[in-house]
Amino acid sequence: MTEFRSKDPEELVAAMAAGDSGRALSAFYAQYASTVLALLTKMLGSPAEAEELLQEVFVELWRRAPQFDRTRGSVVAWVITVARSRALDALRARKRRHGDRQFQYQEGDALMTERKRPDVMASSTRWHQALRQAFQRLDAEQRAVLELSYFQGMSHGQIADTLQLPVGTVKSRILAGMRSLRNMLPIIHRAIKA
């Protein structure tokens, strides 16, 4: 199989939407699989489960390629959204199997603990490191609500119950955290390019 001539993510998705499950899918997989696997592993806490889910995520991305809408976000945002959604499905299924135990939030559940694994690729870039550092610089309260919402799939009501806070406070912290993240990205871009 020869390599797909373009590595442009949108072109790859367009080719997949047209039915290409060969070269375009291979190039798309090469571009995103290791990132998706890292996210799934982080969210599920189980490398074996994450590897199993990786297959399902890419089959779903191929199925959904015709619906990709570039005006709603970048390809990487779409990939991450699909992967996160499948990971949350897996977490809910696990909860149903093992009972709905009260979740005890501890700071760092999703993002702060970075255990080194032998299969961590050397391609961890300054970009990855800078982003994680930026997240760690967020206010601890903002970090907590973003971890619970994005990585644990909790609604603002569930977060309010878990952290024993008014719903309005949870919403304000989410908004403040998202604004901080949005404002940090251009700074990181500039710092890395310098």
Partner: peptide, 29 residues
């Protein structure tokens, strides 16, 4: 919406990439 989604996606893709199992792409195809 797009700006926020790109920001959170950047964060979610910031974990150190992991080696994927050799046979997975074949199984997907």
């Amino acid at each position: 919406v797009k700006d926020f989604q790109d920001s959170i996606a950047a964060l979610a893709s910031s974990f150190d990439p992991l080696e994927t199992p050799a046979k997975t792409l074949g199984k997907i195809q």
